[in-house]
Simulated assay, not measured.
Amino acid sequence: MDYRRLPHSSLDVSQLCLGTMTWGEQNTQSEAFAQLDYAIGKGINFIDTAEMYPVPPKAETQGETERILGNYLKSRGNRDNLVIATKVAGPGGKSDGIRDNMALDWRNIHQAVDDSLERLQIETIDLYQLHWPDRNTNFFGELFYQQQDSEKLTPIIETLEALASLISAGKIRYIGVSNETPWGVMKYLRLAEKHGLPRIISVQNPYNLLNRSFEVGMAEIAHREELPLLAYSPLAFGALTGKYMDDQWPEGARLTLFKRFARYTGSTIALEATKAYVELAREFNLSPAQMALAFVNTRQFVGSNIIGATNLEQLKENIDSIEVTLSAPLLARLNELAELYRIPCP
């Protein structure tokens, strides 16, 4: 396992990060413990969660993922060997059951951090991320930005000041953003520089063979501003494994259970692109999942690749992707497909 220093921080994170959003919904605590034991045994030291998890978000399960992780850390006594990242939810319909007012303001962020620390049973969060923006913008794969003249939002400067106070209090070490746009990222960076506030050190956005939109406006920012991507959904909710091809819906699979996550299976072009990538992997005698993950691993702007699984067999295959080297002919073919299927699933 390779480790990378996140710029502007002292955090050395593993090339692969263990995602957790199925724990408490598709996975029990014992299954989560088994995933953690295996991943850590293979060298993963970076664990990503969120106050909203598990998904899909429900009032009765909200926070359960952090509680499971906290129980694990207490049980194993290995917190100091790990980098723990979590997120505060923003306003919108994706955060039912957390707080009455979900603005990313001083009060809500302080409450969210205290609640996460209690569930995680730790004193400090290594990387604290804003799960999505507190403003009208096109995140979570939405297209067609629509101006809203009467929108309500929390000024980014207020959000940064709240986070700065939490760093001063020792409750968080570093901050990052998630599901952000180029405008939002640059605004955070410039306000921090202007006012002497904490600098964001990472951006967690979706990135995979079906969704390379990060390369359009964000990859240059990642390079020139030293702001690495923490790539989530590298298998496109499992679609890039090929398990949903030909109208197959495996029992217990995420997209079988939760049709709301149909971005990667809900259009003809997405299905055509998926089939092309799966067939290409098989042509080169590779696992489709490992080819898709290995591709993300090759990107210079990626700080860590967030993998997830609902069973150990999947987790083992995903972690073994670090041993896969993509040949020059295969990379060329991948670029040909990317030209043919221009961001079929933004």
Score class of each variant (00 low, 15 high):
Asp134Asn: 14
Asn211Gln: 13
Pro133Ile: 05
Thr181Val: 02
Glu161Trp: 02
Glu161Leu: 03
Pro182His: 06
Arg199Gly: 02
Pro206Glu: 13
Trp183Glu: 12
Lys171Glu: 02
Gln147Phe: 14
Gly176Leu: 06
Pro155Ile: 00
Arg135Trp: 05
Gly184Leu: 07
Ala112Arg: 02
Phe144Ile: 00
Ile221Val: 13
Asp149Trp: 15
Trp183Tyr: 15
Glu118Val: 03
Val185Cys: 06
Lys187Leu: 00
Ala192Ile: 09
Ile172Thr: 05
Leu153Cys: 06
Thr181Leu: 07
Trp183Ser: 11
Glu142Thr: 02
Phe139Gly: 12
Gln147His: 15
Arg173Met: 01
Ser95Cys: 13
Gly196Phe: 02
Ser213Met: 13
Gly184Ser: 11
Tyr207Pro: 12
Leu209Thr: 07
Lys171Asn: 03
Val185Met: 14
Asp134Ser: 10
Thr137Ile: 06
Lys94Phe: 15
Ala162Gln: 04
Arg99Asn: 10
Ile221Ala: 13
Ile122Val: 13
Glu193His: 14
Lys171Gly: 03
Ser165Tyr: 05
Asn108Thr: 09
Glu151His: 11
Glu161Cys: 04
Trp106Val: 00
Ile122Asp: 02
Asn138Asp: 14
Gln121Ala: 09
Arg119Cys: 02
Leu163Ile: 00
Leu197Met: 08
Gly196Tyr: 06
Tyr128Asp: 06
Ile201Cys: 10
Arg212Trp: 07
Ser165Gly: 05
Tyr174Pro: 10
Thr137Glu: 13
Glu123Arg: 06
Asn208Asp: 11
Ser95Glu: 06
Gly92Trp: 08
Ala164His: 11
Pro206Ile: 04
Leu104Ala: 09
Ala219Met: 10
Glu161Val: 01
Arg212Val: 07
Gln111Pro: 05
Met218Ala: 07
